[in-house]
Write a protein that binds this DNA or RNA. Structure first.
Length: 462
RNA sequence: GUGGUUGUAGCUCAGCUGGUUAGAGCACCAGAUUGUGGAUCUGGGGGUCGGGGGUUCAAAUCCCCUCAUCCACCCCA
């Protein structure tokens, strides 16, 4: 028999990973349930995919940076040991070696790419347009910091197989419904990649489009001056930069700014982008004006480079966490890489962990998110425990959460436990109760006690 | 991946320029209260001072390395 206690290890978690205690789970469940309800109300169907995907599915989808942040899983068995034997002369880390020999799987980085993979694999089974939602953890080997974790939940809703802008408007409604239900005031910014592309065309800077969007995305952090400098460093002329500045400086409401932008960027992709944005706003109006603030913002860019049409981003309007609570957009050809081209999709994502952080900071969680134990049987001796057991079961059968303290400990200790667990009622059972056939029901909040027949417990405390 | 911050009891932290057996609050356990929780009082258990190496008669304290943490950058939910 091995002495497993000899080698005691310091308990710890891998960096960026977290446990969720009972209260946190309750609150997270409340968050997820809220989203689930809204998603389903809009006709989205649930989907789950595995944590692990083939690296061939994941690699190259998130840009160079994304590949670096992929968690790679070592092949199981002795693949690595075999590899080392075969390459005994190679010193690990001395120079790059074919990773593929020892790792062919990775943890999912987001939910969109696995969704695209699923759609392609099941295309004959699905009714298009296919709407699905997915609430699952994703993994990024990033360095953790405030509002950034290595394992975090994304809550995605996507519809694939339709170009209709009704979806764009409905997704805004979903954002609106969820954040309104949760009680968070947010700002929802929308833009179109086509407007940005049009601007790049107008400035004859199409070749550096992706780099341009990455810089533009930093506007709220760096301010115009910072963006201006970075673009200058990238080789943008003063004229090109002032053109961009003018676009960002447009005044008026959403529709007015769209009109001006369209006017400025004639004969480019921006015309279509503006038209689509306007159309989306029309649909939104028809579906019902949102409660939350919706702003057309030409500086919104989004890093992920698969977006091609309208893009979204949500940020809290209150609290200290300024980073994004969610985002999304339309991608014209996400399934193309898996061999199914010409299928357009649009989707949004909620960052549950950040939403959690914001709600906690602003104290927005309802007081009781989990229904805990309602009554604790506190027994003086084993005979009392046996006597109580059937009543315990009866309460449970009636759907009430009930517990019995597992030892005939001192009452003091048992009541302390009830108090610590926030259990509102205690049924005290000792010799007196057994002989009289009535239990002493104690209300832990008021401290009052009454003698009741055990059959009436349910009615008294339900 | 880059830069910085902080690691002392289960938790939050104190420990001055190196100097006896490393402290406090909260939490925990026991008792005051042999069938009554929250309050109070009394007592108690708990620490490889993140780990390794070095300087020194002497290191929680100074130096180096390492690990972890948090924050920022990059990037993103």
């Amino acid at each position: 028999m091995s002495d497993y206690r000899a080698a005691s290890v310091k308990p710890a978690l891998p960096s960026g990973m977290r446990d969720f205690g009972p209260q946190e789970v309750g609150r997270r469940r409340y968050l997820f349930d809220t989203m689930r309800q809204v998603f389903e109300r809009y006709g989205y169907q649930p989907l789950e995919t595995p944590v692990m995907e083939l690296l061939s599915t994941l690699e190259g989808k998130y840009g160079e940076e994304g590949d670096r942040l992929l968690y790679r899983v070592l092949n199981s068995g002795d693949a690595f040991a075999r590899w080392k034997e075969q390459h005994a002369e190679v010193r690990l880390g001395a120079f790059s070696f074919p990773l593929r020999d020892i790792t062919e799987k990775g943890l999912r980085y987001d939910l969109t790419v696995p969704f695209a993979r699923y759609v392609v694999m099941n295309r004959h089974r699905l009714a298009f347009p296919f709407r699905r939602y997915q609430i699952q953890p994703v993994f990024r080997a990033d360095r953790p910091q405030k509002g950034r974790y290595r394992e975090f939940y994304q809550c995605d809703a996507d519809v694939i197989g339709s170009r209709s802008l009704v979806h764009e408007a409905e997704l805004i409604k979903i954002y609106d419904d969820v954040f309104t239900a949760l009680g968070i005031r947010v700002t929802l910014r929308i833009n179109s990649r086509k407007v940005l592309l049009g601007l790049a065309q107008h400035c004859r800077a199409e070749s550096r489009f992706t780099a341009f969007t990455v810089v533009l995305d930093k506007l709220d952090r760096l301010g115009w001056q910072g963006v201006d400098e970075e673009l200058a460093a990238m080789g943008w002329t003063a004229e090109q930069r002032s053109e961009l500045h003018a676009l960002l400086q447009l005044q008026g409401n959403n529709l007015q700014r769209l009109e001006q932008a369209e006017h400025r960027l004639r004969q480019t992709a921006a015309e279509e982008g503006c038209r689509e944005l306007r159309q989306t706003l029309h649909w939104l109006h028809a579906l019902g004006e949102p409660v939350q603030q919706v702003v057309v913002d030409f500086s919104l860019a989004r890093g992920l480079n698969y977006y091609t049409g309208i893009i979204y981003e949500v940020a809290s309007a209150q609290g200290t966490l300024k980073s994004s609570l969610g985002g999304g957009g339309r991608y014209d050809d996400l399934t193309g890489i898996f061999g199914l081209s010409g299928v357009s999709g649009v989707g949004i994502s909620f960052g549950a962990d950040r939403i959690y952080d914001v709600m906690e900071e602003l104290n927005l969680f309802p007081p009781a998110t989990v229904a805990g134990t309602r009554i604790l049987f506190c027994c003086m001796d084993e005979a009392a425990m046996l006597w109580s057991a059937p009543y315990l079961t009866a309460l449970r059968q009636n759907g009430l959460a009930a517990e019995m303290y597992p030892e005939p400990e001192k009452l003091q200790k048992q009541l302390k436990y009830a108090h610590a667990r926030n259990i509102p009622f205690a049924a005290l059972v000792g010799e007196q109760e057994r002989t009289s056939g009535r239990v002493t029901l104690k209300d832990l909040n008021s401290g009052q006690q009454q003698s009741v027949p055990p059959e009436e417990l349910y009615e008294k405390i339900k």
